Lab assay of single mutants.
Amino acid sequence: MGFKLLSKLLVYLTASIMAIASPLAFSVDSSGEYPTVSEIPVGEVRLYQIADGVWSHIATQSFDGAVYPSNGLIVRDGDELLLIDTAWGAKNTAALLAEIEKQIGLPVTRAVSTHFHDDRVGGVDVLRAAGVATYASPSTRRLAEVEGNEIPTHSLEGLSSSGDAVRFGPVELFYPGAAHSTDNLIVYVPSASVLYGGCAIYELSRTSAGNVADADLAEWPTSIERIQQHYPEAQFVIPGHGLPGGLDLLKHTTNVVKAHTNRSVVE
């Protein structure tokens, strides 16, 4: 069995187990497998329904001669939608809004960016022009300005110390501490036991640490421990890039980060 097929099978099995364990909360999309990078042309966006009122959005972007996937989250909030992270750029984010209108038909009224990198804030200006209120932590807003990236308009308070959590509509926002970046936030959907790890969490097929220019490698494993301790009931975990899975993604990420750190020390 090929690795790609095995990865998709694991996603399907995880979703099936969740649907059985929580039949009222989960209505997993039966329309197909989780979209992969090879299936999404740059400039297009796919939506994948995880649970009743919960979707991931998947886009792709060219970077350094390669094409990478990027995940975000959409959560229903009454007759409105909360968006977590842009679709990595203005063109993708405009396509995301169009796809949401086509498939869901509810307005996106608020959006949260989970850290300051372009795959999370690139497209904020498109959201703002569409009347979406954009939010991020003060740290993310400051770092985005320093980096020359787009800056969300509103500040999220109460997320300055490791372990801080605040309720934001249908989700809980959690600051686990520094990891992929010093400002990275985690998003949890309690009604569906869905954990969105953003770039602080890796997919299972990833074996290298990737972009760690703004990471705190020493603190990252401790931050992941905080996530595990705060959300032990999480059933569906979405990484910032690639295929979702279960809580095993947290341990896998820790292993990859520690291996990278150990290699760096040896070198």
Score class of each variant (00 low, 15 high):
T153W: 06
S113L: 11
D64C: 04
T134K: 01
Y202S: 11
R141W: 04
K258M: 13
N92P: 06
G148D: 15
T222W: 10
L247M: 07
I201R: 01
L81V: 12
N71F: 00
V166D: 04
S30V: 11
G148I: 07
V237Y: 05
M18Q: 05
L159I: 11
R206I: 10
L204W: 12
S137V: 13
P232Y: 05
S155Y: 11
S205A: 08
I238K: 01
E80G: 14
L127M: 07
E80K: 15
K8D: 12
P152S: 10
D119F: 00
L156H: 03
A200P: 03
I186P: 00
T140L: 03
E80H: 07
V42E: 12
L96R: 01
M1E: 04
P170N: 07
T109C: 05
L204M: 09
H252I: 03
Q235P: 05
L10W: 13
L73R: 02
P170A: 08
I17A: 06
H230C: 05
K8M: 07
V187L: 07
S7L: 05
S193H: 10
S70N: 06
V265A: 11
G148H: 08
Q229I: 05
A95W: 06
V132G: 01
D52E: 08
L83V: 13
A218S: 09
N71G: 04
N255K: 15
V237E: 01
P221N: 06
D77V: 05
G240K: 03
I201Y: 00
S160H: 10
G245A: 05
G169P: 05
P35R: 12
V75N: 02
D119Q: 01
Y231R: 02
G131Y: 06
L9G: 07
T253M: 03
H57V: 03
S62E: 13
I50R: 02
S160T: 14
V166E: 11
A133L: 14
S193C: 03
T109L: 14
E233D: 12
I224F: 03
V124L: 08
E172T: 14
I186G: 02
A25V: 09
V126L: 12
G210W: 03
I151M: 09
V132Q: 02
N255Y: 15
I74H: 00
V146W: 13
L173N: 02
T261Y: 08
A165M: 15
V42K: 08
E147H: 09
L159V: 14
I104T: 08
A98S: 13
T14C: 12
D79V: 13
T222H: 11
S70I: 02
R206Y: 08
L247Y: 06
P69F: 15
L185G: 02
T254S: 13
R76T: 07
G240V: 03
Q229L: 12
R206L: 08
S181R: 01
I84E: 00
A218D: 13
N262S: 09
L204N: 07
P41C: 11
V256N: 04
T60W: 08
V265T: 15
V54F: 03
V194G: 01
T207Y: 10
Q228W: 14
Y202H: 15
P176M: 04
R76P: 03
S62V: 09
D77K: 06
F168P: 03
N211V: 13
S155N: 07
M18E: 05
E99M: 09
K4T: 09
P69L: 11
H115F: 00
I104C: 01
C199Q: 00
L24T: 09
T207M: 11
A130P: 04
F174T: 02
I201A: 05
G89R: 04
I84W: 00
S137M: 09
I224G: 02
D125N: 11
D52F: 06
R120H: 04
T153F: 06
S113E: 04
P244F: 05
H117G: 00
Q228R: 11
